[in-house]
Amino acid sequence: MPLQPIEPGPDPRIQHETTVLNSFTYHYLLGVPPGGNFKATIFLIHGWPDLSLGWRYQIPLLLDMGFRVVAPDMMGYGGTDAPKVPPNPINLYGIKRASDDIAELAKQLGAERIILGGHDWGGFVVWRAAQWHPELVSHVFAICTPYTAPHEQYTSLEDLVKGALPQFAYQIHLASGEVEKSVNSEESIRQFFKGLYGGRGPNGETAFDPNQGVLAENLPKVGESRLLHGKVLDHYVKEYSRHGIHSTLNWYRTRKTNWEEDLALLDRKTISIPTLFVQATYDSVLKPELSRNMDTYLPNLTRGEVAATHWALTQKPDEVNAIIRKWLEGQGFGTRSSL
């Protein structure tokens, strides 16, 4: 019988916890295998526009395998604080800050070593967290997000889009402040999620284009999404209505500060611990060719792929889970805890 995804709201397999990490309050999901014993702790880091519940299909697998699972809402999302910028500095939404907050949460939970898994922005976070906190992270896996090494030279998003990555143009739109003008109410947030997760209008209208961004004029037209609907959609709408969408978009305003902080990692480009990268072959932004040279910096890399779009975690959960399970078992973590 396939494992059932974590439910929004009460679910006996997880607890909803809050804590203060480096002066800001975080909400996170905590799951412990029955009996309270676990073989290791896995942190699952979500991206945009997602929440900790984006891992709802993976958490049951990992609990079943005997892991303690921690899935936070990242800065600006859901039940976690969303500090305003300004007056606060934008690096509160940067990758180093996220890495440091993960390390602090691990410390609070008494985890001396953790396994890190990430998707989308969460993928960028987990690669860098392994570099910022090498003493903490024992294994890393990323879904959709390839590893990119720190760079000595800064390249603006605009130059990146003019050059090799035209499909990153949406990030310019997300950072611009325009999206908040059309996604600013409970109903528009609902339509936004339907559209971002694949809903279409009566004539095939889409709500997102990698080369443009969010297509505000199409938001009222889009219908139901097969990937995000019902009570899960209701949960996302409720959680995003707490702070509005603006704070989540601050992650797209951090390119310069992330590069500046990355300069301290130029001598740590190689990640030698065991790593797993799962490519979604139909990802329209993080395309397969972007992962071509990862092996240069990841000597312990395992690759997997699923025939899915960017939403592989929920579109093809069984395939994603099978790859994660096989990799973890290959790293010496048996199917179930022997403790």
Rank of each mutant, 00 (worst) to 15 (best):
V179H: 04
T145P: 00
V161L: 05
I271Q: 02
V183N: 07
Y197F: 15
E178P: 05
A149F: 00
V137R: 01
D81Q: 13
C144S: 15
V183K: 02
L328W: 02
A207K: 07
L61Y: 02
W48N: 13
V278R: 04
H151L: 13
I95L: 14
A142G: 12
T206D: 04
N203D: 15
G66Y: 03
V32S: 11
K84I: 09
R325C: 10
R97F: 11
I273V: 13
I271T: 10
H243D: 08
P33W: 03
L62F: 08
H173S: 10
L61P: 01
G47I: 07
L109G: 07
P86Q: 11
W121R: 12
F24P: 00
A129S: 14
P146Y: 04
G78H: 08
G123R: 02
P49L: 06
P86D: 13
G31D: 05
E289S: 14
G118T: 09
D318M: 11
Q153K: 15
E329G: 01
W327C: 13
Y197H: 15
G54L: 03
L328Y: 09
K39G: 08
S99I: 07
M75C: 13
V126K: 01
A175M: 02
Q58T: 14
N250C: 12
A82K: 10
T18W: 10
F43W: 07
Q167W: 09
K221G: 07
I45Q: 13
V126P: 00
K162Y: 00
Y282N: 14
S225T: 08
K231R: 15
G123L: 03
V70P: 03
N250M: 10
Y93E: 07
D64F: 12
T25Q: 15
S225V: 12
K269T: 04
G199I: 04
I95A: 02
G47E: 04
S272W: 09
G9Q: 07
I271D: 03
T302G: 05
Y170D: 03
V320H: 04
G54E: 04
R303H: 04
Q108W: 05
I114P: 01
V161A: 11
Y28P: 06
G223T: 00
P49A: 14
G201L: 11
P150Q: 12
S156E: 04
T148A: 14
N88V: 06
P202C: 00
F124A: 15
E112Q: 14
L92A: 05
K194D: 00
G9V: 08
K84R: 15
P274F: 07
P12E: 13
W259L: 08
I90T: 04
P317K: 09
L298P: 05
A103G: 10
V32D: 02
T296F: 09
T248C: 12
D11Q: 11
A322D: 12
S176V: 06
K181I: 00
L62A: 10
R242W: 00
E135I: 00
L290D: 08
Y297I: 02
N218T: 06
E180R: 10
S185K: 00
F333Q: 05
D295H: 14
K316N: 12
G94I: 03
A106T: 11
D262K: 07
Y147P: 01
R255Q: 11
N293M: 09
T254R: 01
